[in-house]
Computed example of a mutant assay.
Amino acid sequence: MLTNMHVAIIGGDARQLEVIRKLIELDARLSLIGFDQLDHGYTGASKVRLDEIDISDIDAIILPVSGTNGEGEVETIFSNETVILTEEIISKTPKHCVIYSGISNTYLDRIVKQSNRELVQLFERDDVAIYNSIPTVEGTIMMVIQHTDITIHNSKVAVLGLGRVGMSVARSFAALGAHVKVGARKTEHIARITEMGLTPFHLTELEKEVKDIDVCINTIPHLVVTASVISKMPAHTLIVDLASKPGGTDFRYAEKRGIKALLAPGLPGIVAPKTAGQIVANVLSQLLLELLQHREENE
């Protein structure tokens, strides 16, 4: 249980509602910042402004999956209030306070480091990423069905990258009857693709490998689907880019060429916010329980 642990949840989308529910079940004391337009009332949680709470009493800060933007502004779907997280605010927290975010950026890294606090990026964890690959795959299948005029069965699909998402996407499209080829750089990934019964190719051969594909699914967060690569694709090819913004595709050239290219990061929160929220909530609750246990052992 998290009895008497004071957690500030700052901003977020529908996924954060599952986090709130889970932490209330564990008896945490919650301050909800950026939720003033949320109709649902939660016993054990208070909707407050950031300047209304005692910062020195906060044991943990939970940010949205997106963290902050480059100026420290936090996304607040359930409020018109602009919430900005600063180094000054973090510095006022107790030294044991931990900041949890889905992802980070230069701004957030800097203010946490300068405040000498710990930052945990949930989406860097294998468990979160693997669980999240499930709704990501379902969302990708949905997008391919919506934006093509052929069946996935018997289509030619190129998946770029064999990370945690790439592996799930490649396996699922193959299970639906697609002819799947997977591009990777590491020799161990090439070996794994072969073991999975799929067709491997090295990313240096990408221009040659896209000449006959129907769908290209990119999971690599670097520019790999370049203008040169797109110029070799058939005109009907659909590109679905699952990499974090700005993606790994030259979207300008794709539009110029008339090839449909969709940037689709954060699919779990779009297609299955409840499940995606439960994934985050379960991992977060475990981390907070470990934090509390560690604190009690050192007191």
Rank of each mutant, 00 (worst) to 15 (best):
L17G: 04
G44I: 02
A191S: 10
I33S: 08
V225C: 02
F78P: 04
I239D: 07
L263S: 10
F173V: 09
H153G: 08
T82H: 07
N218K: 03
E118L: 11
K113E: 15
L288E: 06
G70V: 12
S155I: 09
V74K: 06
S101Q: 13
S115G: 10
G44H: 09
A235V: 14
L223C: 03
K22I: 00
E87D: 06
V180N: 05
V48I: 11
G247I: 01
F173S: 12
V65Y: 11
E207S: 10
A227I: 05
I53T: 06
E25K: 14
G183F: 02
D212K: 05
P268S: 01
I103E: 01
D51H: 11
T194A: 14
T136Q: 05
K245W: 07
D27V: 07
G266A: 10
A60R: 13
A184R: 13
V144M: 09
I270Y: 07
G266H: 04
S101A: 15
A178C: 10
N69W: 04
T93F: 15
I90Y: 04
R257H: 12
T249A: 02
V165R: 06
G258P: 03
V240W: 06
R125M: 00
I111V: 00
S228Y: 02
V224Q: 06
V169F: 11
V83R: 08
D214L: 02
H147R: 08
T275K: 11
E255M: 13
M233V: 03
I145P: 09
C97N: 05
A45F: 07
S66Q: 14
A175K: 15
E299H: 12
V7K: 04
Y107R: 11
E18G: 12
L119C: 01
G67I: 02
A235N: 14
V137M: 10
D13H: 14
V180E: 05
S168D: 08
G248H: 11
I217P: 00
V74P: 08
T76Y: 05
E296A: 10
N4H: 12
K22T: 00
A45G: 04
K208M: 10
R15S: 03
S66T: 14
L206Y: 03
T194S: 15
N132A: 05
H202M: 09
V19M: 08
Q114S: 08
E88V: 12
L122D: 00
D212A: 08
L63A: 00
S56Q: 09
V120R: 01
F201Y: 15
A175E: 13
T204P: 01
E81K: 07
L291D: 13
V225T: 08
E195V: 03
Q37L: 15
A272P: 03
S31R: 10
Q146G: 08
G67Y: 02
D59G: 15
F78C: 06
D126V: 00
V210E: 05
V169M: 11
L2T: 05
E205M: 05
I99E: 08
N69F: 01
K95M: 10
I89A: 08
I130E: 01
A178H: 13
M143T: 14
S285D: 11
P64R: 06
T187I: 14
D212T: 12
L288D: 05
N282R: 04
D27W: 07
V180Q: 03
I53E: 01
L119Y: 03
D241E: 09
H189W: 02
M167A: 14
